[in-house]
Amino acid sequence: MKANQISTGKFVNDKEVIAVELSNTKGTYVKIFNYGTIINKFVVKNAKGEDQDIVLGFDDFDGYISKEYLSNYPYFGSIVGRYANRIKGGEFTIEGTSYQLPKNNGDDCLHGGLQGFDQKVWDIVELTESPNASVTFHYYSFDGEEGFPGDLAVQLQFTLTENDELILTYQADTDEATPINLTHHSYFNLAANSNDIRSHVHQMNASNWLEQDDNYVVTGKLIPVDGTHHDFRKGKTFAEGWDEENGYDQTYVLDKTYGELTLASKTSAVDSGLTLSIYTTEPVAHLYTAKYTDVKNGKDGKSYGKFSAFCVETQHAPNSLNIPAFPSTILQPGEVYHQTTIYKVSK
C-alpha cells in the first residue's frame, strides 16, 4: 500500500494544490486533489487485465479551473457541500430565524451555492500507508459562508483497501445549528471503449423515488417505482424503457434501515467485466446520467457529452430543510455529523 503527495505547482486563493496518490498491491490507483477533494483518477484492472480509469475528468489540474469548464460546470469528481442538490428558493428557517442562500440554479440554491466546498483548497492533515493507504482532508467553513450559519469543521478521509474499495468517511461539527448534507459527485463510466453508459446494467435497492418540480427540486412526495422505468430493483440497462431525451436525474429512497451501511446500487459493463457496488449509511441516492454534460478536452483529449457517465450521489433527501416529514439535516452544537460511502470495484 502506498500514499504519496505531489505538488501540482498551482495555487488557488494563495493555497497550494496538492495531488494525493493512493495505491494497493493489485495495481488499483486513486488520485485525489486537495482542491474540492476531487477524485481525478480511479484506475483498476478490468477483466482483460488492462488498466482502466473509471472516472471522468482532466489530465491535469488546470482543466478543473478553466473558464470553459466552469461555464457549464458539472462538478466532476468533487465533494458537494454544505448542502447537496437543490434547496427551494435558497431559503430555510432554523429555530425561527430565516436564512437566504445564493440562487445559483434558477430560483433555487444548488450544491452549496456559488462557491461551495467543491471549489475550496482543503488541508491535508494525515497520510497513512498501513493497514491501508489513506488520506484525510480538513476544511473549516466560517459562519456566513454562502449564507449558511455557524462555523463548521469538516473532515473527509479516503481509504483504499486491498479489496479495491475506496471508502469515504465524513465527519463534521459546528458551533451553531446549521444545515449539512454532503455527497461526492464522481462521474463513472465502466465501459472499456465507449463514451456512453446506455448499456450499463444498473441495480438500485429503492422502492420509491422523490417527486420533483420543474427545476428538479424535491417536493416531499414519494412515488412508487412499481410498473415504471424507475424500477431498478432487479437490475436493467439504463436505456431500457427510459426517457431517451432526459435519462435519469432523480432521487431514490433506499430500502434500508436508517443509518446502517448497506448496498445502495450495483452497476456493471459487459465489455470491461467491471462492476461498481456502492454502499452507504445515507437514506437516499440521487441518480444522474449526465444529461447536461458538455465538456471538451477531457482525459486523452476526449469530449464528454450527454449520457457519457452516471453519478450515484449518496446523501439525505434534497430540500429536506423545507420538508419537516423528512429526516433532519440540521447539525446542532455538540453533535457530530458522520456518514460513510464505499465505492467497491469487482470483476
Rank of each mutant, 00 (worst) to 15 (best):
197 I>S: 01
271 D>W: 03
149 P>F: 04
214 D>V: 14
168 L>D: 02
265 S>W: 01
258 Y>A: 12
252 Y>Q: 01
227 G>F: 13
221 K>A: 15
242 W>C: 07
203 Q>N: 04
155 Q>K: 11
264 A>C: 09
199 S>A: 14
188 F>P: 00
203 Q>V: 05
139 Y>K: 03
154 V>Y: 00
197 I>G: 00
173 D>F: 03
180 I>H: 02
204 M>A: 06
197 I>F: 03
236 K>Y: 07
230 H>A: 06
157 Q>D: 03
246 N>T: 09
213 D>M: 11
194 S>A: 15
200 H>N: 13
233 R>H: 11
228 T>R: 14
266 K>I: 03
271 D>N: 12
210 L>W: 03
232 F>R: 01
168 L>C: 05
200 H>Q: 14
212 Q>Y: 02
189 N>E: 06
154 V>F: 01
194 S>G: 04
168 L>T: 02
146 E>A: 08
193 N>W: 01
162 E>V: 05
154 V>D: 00
136 T>N: 09
260 E>H: 11
258 Y>E: 14
261 L>D: 05
143 D>E: 08
222 L>C: 12
206 A>D: 00
219 T>K: 14
228 T>A: 13
269 A>K: 00
209 W>P: 01
245 E>D: 13
270 V>L: 12
253 V>R: 04
234 K>E: 15
152 L>K: 00
201 V>C: 06
267 T>Q: 06
272 S>N: 08
206 A>Q: 00
191 A>T: 05
156 L>C: 10
146 E>I: 04
183 T>R: 01
241 G>W: 12
206 A>W: 02
233 R>S: 14
260 E>W: 05
202 H>Y: 15
161 T>V: 07
182 L>S: 02
257 T>S: 12
147 G>H: 06
270 V>E: 15
173 D>T: 12
207 S>R: 04
215 N>L: 13
235 G>N: 11
187 Y>H: 07
233 R>A: 06
266 K>T: 07
250 Q>A: 11
209 W>N: 02
256 K>C: 09
243 D>P: 08
150 G>H: 02
143 D>V: 10
139 Y>Q: 06
193 N>A: 15
163 N>R: 10
252 Y>H: 04
195 N>A: 11
158 F>P: 02
180 I>L: 09
173 D>C: 04
256 K>D: 06
244 E>G: 06
204 M>D: 02
269 A>P: 03
233 R>Q: 15
137 F>E: 01
221 K>E: 15
186 S>D: 08
204 M>Y: 01
258 Y>T: 10
154 V>I: 15
243 D>I: 07
225 V>Q: 03
232 F>T: 01
137 F>M: 07
257 T>M: 09
201 V>A: 05
171 Q>W: 00
195 N>F: 06
247 G>T: 05
196 D>G: 03
269 A>T: 04
243 D>C: 08
246 N>S: 13
261 L>G: 04
190 L>M: 07
204 M>Q: 02
232 F>A: 04
137 F>I: 07
156 L>F: 05
150 G>E: 02
240 E>Y: 11
239 A>T: 05
192 A>K: 09
271 D>R: 05
271 D>G: 11
151 D>E: 13
214 D>L: 12
248 Y>S: 03
145 E>A: 11
175 D>N: 15
171 Q>V: 00
211 E>W: 09
193 N>M: 07
247 G>M: 04
153 A>T: 09
233 R>V: 08
